[in-house]
C-alpha cells in the first residue's frame, strides 16, 4: 500500500530526502503548512539551522500539530541533524522552539564550526553484518544523554549519533547526502510497522 511520507520543506536537503524516499518505496510530499501535514502519514525533518527551522515551524503551527500526532497517533518522525534537535526533549545552551518528545539531550554544533564538519563510515546496529554507512556530519549535534526508552543505533567517538524511541528516529548525520538509501528504507519500514500499512 502507498505510504505518504512528508519532508519538511523549510530548509536543507528537501529534494535529496524526497529522492531517497521514492527509491525506498514511499510517496514523498513536501510539507510547509498544516494543510500539507494533514496529507502525510509520517514526516522527515531535514537538516538546516535548528533555530530557524524551529521558529518557522512554530509560526505555521506545525510544532503543536506534530507533537499532538506523535503523542496521540504514534506519528512516525525522522529528524536528521537540525531535525534531531527539533525532536530532542533537552538541548544544551540556547534552546530553539521544538517538538521535544524524544528523551534525549542534544548538544548543538558539538563538533565545532564548519572547519570541523566531517565524513566517516558508521556501524549501524540494525543493519547487522551489512557494510558500514557513509555518514556526513555538518556542524552536527551530539546526543549527550538518552533515557531508558531510547535505543541507540550508532555511536561515533563515544557518543550516540543515531537512536530511536517508539515511532521517532533521529540521526546527527545526513543519510541523504550519500547514495545509500538503507536508512530511508529502515524508516519507511518503521512507518509501515507502526501504522500497519
Amino acid at each position: 500500500m502507498e505510504v505518504r511520507v512528508g519532508v519538511l520543506a523549510i530548509q536543507g536537503d528537501v529534494r535529496e530526502h524526497k529522492n531517497h524516499l521514492a527509491l525506498a518505496g514511499a510517496t514523498p510530499v513536501e510539507v510547509r503548512t498544516l494543510k500539507d501535514l494533514n496529507r502525510v502519514q509520517a514526516l522527515i525533518i531535514p537538516g538546516g539551522e535548528s533555530t530557524t527551522i524551529g521558529m518557522l515551524m512554530a509560526e505555521e503551527g506545525l510544532i503543536d500539530e506534530i507533537s499532538s500526532r506523535v503523542q496521540n497517533d504514534q506519528f512516525p518522525v525522522y529528524g536528521t541533524c537540525a531535525g534531531l534537535i527539533v525532536l530532542a526533549r533537552d538541548v544544551v545552551g540556547l534552546s530553539p522552539a521544538r517538538v521535544g518528545l524524544m528523551d534525549i539531550t542534544a548538544d548543538r554544533n558539538a563538533y565545532g564550526r564548519q572547519v570541523s564538519s566531517f565524513e566517516t563510515k558508521l556501524r549501524i546496529s540494525v543493519f547487522h553484518d551489512q557494510p558500514d554507512f557513509p555518514a556526513v556530519f555538518i556542524r552536527a549535534p551530539r546526543i549527550t544523554r538518552y533515557g531508558p526508552g531510547v535505543t541507540p543505533l550508532a555511536t561515533y567517538d563515544g557518543s550516540v549519533v543515531m537512536a530511536e524511541q517508539g515511532a521517532l528516529l533521529v540521526s546527527a548525520f545526513h543519510p541523504e547526502m550519500s547514495g545509500d538509501i538503507r536508512i530511508h528504507q529502515y524508516f519507511v519500514e518503521k512507518v509501515r510497522k507502526t501504522l500497519k500499512v
Binding site: 530548509q11 536543507g12 536537503d13 535529496e16 538546516g48 564538519s117 566531517f118 565524513e119 556542524r139 545526513h174
Partner: peptide, 15 residues
C-alpha cells in the same frame, strides 16, 4: 572534503 563543504550550502537551501 568537497562533500562536507558543499554539504553546508545544501543545508542552507531555502533560506
Amino acid at each position: 572534503t568537497f562533500n562536507v563543504k558543499a554539504g553546508l550550502a545544501e543545508m542552507l537551501k531555502g533560506g
